[in-house]
Computed example of a mutant assay.
Amino acid sequence: MSDSAIIHPDYIRIVERKPNGWLIKTGTLFYKRLAVNFQDLELLYGVSKEEMLAQLSRLNQGKQGFYLADLRHRQYRYCGVSSDSIKPVLRELGIGRIDPREN
């Protein structure tokens, strides 16, 4: 991923499709109200990693690049081959805004 940070809700997972498989990106939690394992997708959202990856592989025939998994709403999106394509897709979902310092 690029050097810029991507801040998103926990129910959104960023996944990268590489030639040798899928890589679920892990981030740093900066606010945590619950004492649960936030990597346990089945406990939190009723979706297993296998189910999530099966849904993602149906998009663009599992083409290499970056994907978003909205586990709360069970929506999956292909972003593109560059990590820079993630933020615009998040903004389409109403998450985040354009940094006023960027032009």
Rank of each mutant, 00 (worst) to 15 (best):
M1G: 12
D3S: 08
D3L: 15
S4G: 06
S4K: 09
S4Q: 05
A5M: 10
I6T: 13
I6V: 04
H8V: 07
P9V: 14
D10Y: 09
D10G: 08
Y11W: 07
I12A: 00
I12T: 02
I14W: 02
V15H: 01
E16Y: 01
R17L: 04
K18R: 03
N20H: 13
N20K: 14
L23R: 14
L23G: 00
I24F: 11
I24M: 09
K25Q: 15
T26P: 01
T26V: 02
G27V: 09
T28S: 14
T28N: 11
T28R: 09
T28P: 06
L29K: 13
L29Q: 07
L29A: 12
F30S: 13
F30E: 12
F30W: 10
Y31F: 09
L34V: 13
A35R: 15
A35G: 01
N37A: 07
L41T: 07
E42T: 10
L43T: 10
L44V: 08
Y45N: 09
G46T: 09
G46V: 05
S48E: 07
S48T: 13
S48P: 01
K49F: 04
E50T: 05
E51D: 08
M52K: 10
L53N: 06
L53V: 06
L53T: 03
L56Y: 01
L56A: 03
S57Q: 10
S57R: 07
R58Q: 15
L59D: 07
N60S: 11
G62M: 08
Q64C: 09
F66M: 02
F66Y: 14
Y67C: 08
L68S: 10
L68R: 00
L68D: 12
L68N: 07
A69Y: 01
A69W: 00
D70R: 04
R72K: 08
H73L: 09
H73M: 09
R74Y: 10
Y76D: 14
R77D: 07
R77A: 11
Y78R: 03
Y78I: 06
Y78V: 02
G80T: 00
V81S: 04
V81W: 06
S82F: 15
S85M: 14
I86K: 01
I86T: 05
P88N: 10
L90T: 03
R91K: 06
R91N: 01
E92R: 13
L93C: 15
L93S: 00
L93K: 14
G94L: 11
I95D: 02
I95P: 00
R97F: 14
D99S: 11
P100D: 11
R101E: 13
R101F: 08
E102W: 02
N103W: 06
